[in-house]
Design a protein around this nucleic acid. Structure first.
Lengths: 117, 117
DNA sequence: GCCGTGGATCGATGAGTGTCAACATAGAGG
DNA sequence: CCTCTATGTTGACACTCATCGATCCACGGC
């Protein structure tokens, strides 16, 4: 696994830190964090925008904007099916962040990354 | 473990998300991410500000500001010894974030949270 | 007490961000 | 084609943030 030297093993390089911080910044907003959580915990591992919007007292364009930020950070991916757009989490991205934060001994086994219940 | 329902198990409550997002936001800056990494990987688990500042092409007040943000987010703690101020990571905080991000099956054992080498 | 050094704080400024209303786009169904 | 519904995009505005120079505080040494 050449991708995930855990934080604390050695200082991050500058561009490495840049990539990671873009993902952390995307999670650094309560609305976006709840969006990721709602998508991740939704039945089937995916949720359509119309499932997410009513949970917030925000306009639909604002939710759409937050979803775009998460998408561009690589944390979420979307697929259009008919009229609706379904969002899924990108498990590898979450796992990468978790691996960086977590102690080295607990790095996520690759066998678990793609499989998601 | 009342503190760490992993993201993906159930949607985050609003204030829970607020707390977590404050920590993620603190990591959402390349300078702060590198600061945490440098402190975490420094010999003895702590680093003095004079060890950190020269690694960046930023003024000393700016570094001090970033350290304050990390401190107020609960990710770093500091202690004054003589003339110098030493910073350490708060392992429980990093572990909490890692546990939230990681798949449920891999949640960090509590036995590892407080103990950090 | 008086400096000198390591850090923190203050005030200002330019860049970035969250939010909305208004508009644009994409399928579905007539 | 036309219209309706579900989403994305744009432009604008207020608010936050990263950064700096100047200043202030805490220690240690004289």
């Amino acid at each position: 696994m050449p991708c995930c030297p855990p934080l604390g093993r050695e200082p991050l390089t500058q561009d490495w830190a840049g990539d990671l911080s873009r993902m952390f910044k995307a999670l650094g907003d309560p609305v976006r964090l709840r969006l990721v959580s709602m998508v991740a915990s939704h039945a089937g591992g995916e949720a359509c925008v119309c499932d997410l919007t009513p949970a917030f007292e925000l306009s639909q364009p604002t939710i759409s904007h937050h979803l775009k930020v998460l998408r561009e950070a690589g944390l979420l991916e979307c697929e259009r099916r008919g009229t609706w757009v379904f969002y899924r989490v990108v498990p590898a991205a979450l796992a990468e962040l978790a691996a960086v934060l977590g102690p080295a001994e607990l790095s996520v086994p690759d066998s678990l990354l793609p499989a998601r219940s």
